[in-house]
Amino acid sequence: MTLSLFPLGWGHYLAGGLLIGVGVSLLFVLTGWVGGMSTVFSSTWSYVSRRPFFQQARFVETRVWRLVFALGLVVGAAIWLWVLGPTGGLHTGIPLWQLGAGGLLVGFGARLSNGCTSGHGICGLGSLQWPSLVAVLTFMATGFLTANAVLFLGGR
């Protein structure tokens, strides 16, 4: 049972998930800020775009710490690579067109929905917000359908 559900083992999944929770929690306890990851992709545009949408206070007032938080993500992953990761870094076999086209939809959709896997999935559910539960179930469903359709059509 365990073998078929988790063919690569399960300890690193649970440990990593708990650490993600500790990071989000520490941010909250120290600063009171709620750290989903998709907003930084809108708030950072406020540095270069004069459009009223990006100049909203909710982006301008949080753009600095959101960028620092994003920098922290890079630093944390780099420490993992240094301590535990493979020499030469990670690589992916996913075709670039899938990464690019998928990324476009991920960015557009997450911002329209005002949350992603961390915003709705971790912070929203952690706040007991049922709209986030609806969002999570929705993107799990369309993600499942798309990933399997891609496989069926011969993609990676």
Partner: peptide, 17 residues
């Protein structure tokens, strides 16, 4: 938005974090 996000996620396996 969540539906569109999911389609992109299923296509590339990458989310913002």
């Amino acid at each position: 938005g969540a539906a569109i996000f999911g389609v992109g996620w299923g296509l590339c396996g990458v989310c913002p974090g």
